[in-house]
Design a protein around this nucleic acid. Structure first.
Lengths: 148, 148
DNA sequence: ATCCTAAATGAAATATTGTTGCATTTATAT
DNA sequence: ATATAAATGCAACAATATTTCATTTAGGAT
């Protein structure tokens, strides 16, 4: 179980979005906030065997709709979800940051601290959002690589 | 946009990669070169009903391995493939350009002419490749939008 | 505290998407 | 013209995502 303090915060988050405070949702929230990498439905399924697959899909979907998490695809095209910054609103994400996908451990990192430089597109294109995907070695796997 | 190629050129491309010049491959090549947007397996299946699903998957895979095309995921996480620049090599793509995904027509454009600005990642991350993903309105849909 | 209702969950069925194995066909080098 | 390695087509399979519906649960009303 997570600390009581954290759990209250998760309950507040659900309250704020008019979502019922159910056990599966709280567990998913606490798991996602405990990691610094994105989480996929398979990730959740591996850890929470007692929660139905479908429930996990639905929780991820509703969290995304409400702007609690945002979706990012990894190198294999599977959907990963990462917790959003405070400035995310429902269906209007401010996820203009850098996503890093490690080619070894496959983890997806959201590098929120980095902002994107201005990009000018060819005439006619009207962009609404940008995301930069980088792939390579994450700090952990890079370290292991050097040691070998 | 894309340069128009004739059948002889497609045959040459297959030759160069030690691939047999088969009818399905030539048809896929000609279709992909006739568009300025990326192509998915469903796209191909919709047009070429007489070619087997599996064959299309395999053609896309082998073309990607050989560096003839490169893979890019659209907003829905489905794999799209676009013809590569001349400087693509097998399994070592130079696809560090901008991909634009239209939210209306769902088409994926490869904006090869744009190059990416330098990005510095947090300490420890060792990037190998970058892709910038933009979404919004493509020129066509933007135009329609203004007219309404 | 108990009851009521809408929301959420769980389980089964279905749909969609991608892969594997194998028999047949085809391109191409000899 | 033939041999053979590669490519195709088909069927079965596997993995992934969605739909439907009966049951359970959270949270407000009484």
């Amino acid at each position: 179980m997570t600390s009581i303090k954290n759990n209250y915060q998760f309950e507040d988050m659900l309250d704020k979005h008019q979502l019922k405070k159910t056990a599966p949702r709280l567990r998913v929230l606490s798991m996602m906030y405990s990691k610094n990498t994105a989480t996929s439905q398979p990730d959740l399924e591996n850890v929470m065997h007692d929660i139905d697959r479908v429930t996990l899909y639905r929780i991820l979907n509703v969290f995304e709709e409400k702007g609690i998490i945002h979706k990012v695809f990894d190198l294999n095209g599977t959907a990963n979800y990462a917790v959003c910054h405070s400035d995310c609103e429902a269906n209007h994400h401010h996820d203009e940051h850098v996503h890093f996908n490690c080619t070894v451990c496959k983890n997806v990192y959201c590098l929120n601290e980095l902002s994107l430089p201005d990009i000018t597109l060819p005439a006619g294109f009207k962009p609404e959002s940008f995301t930069l995907y980088a792939s390579g070695l994450c700090p952990k796997c890079n370290k292991k690589n050097l040691v070998k």
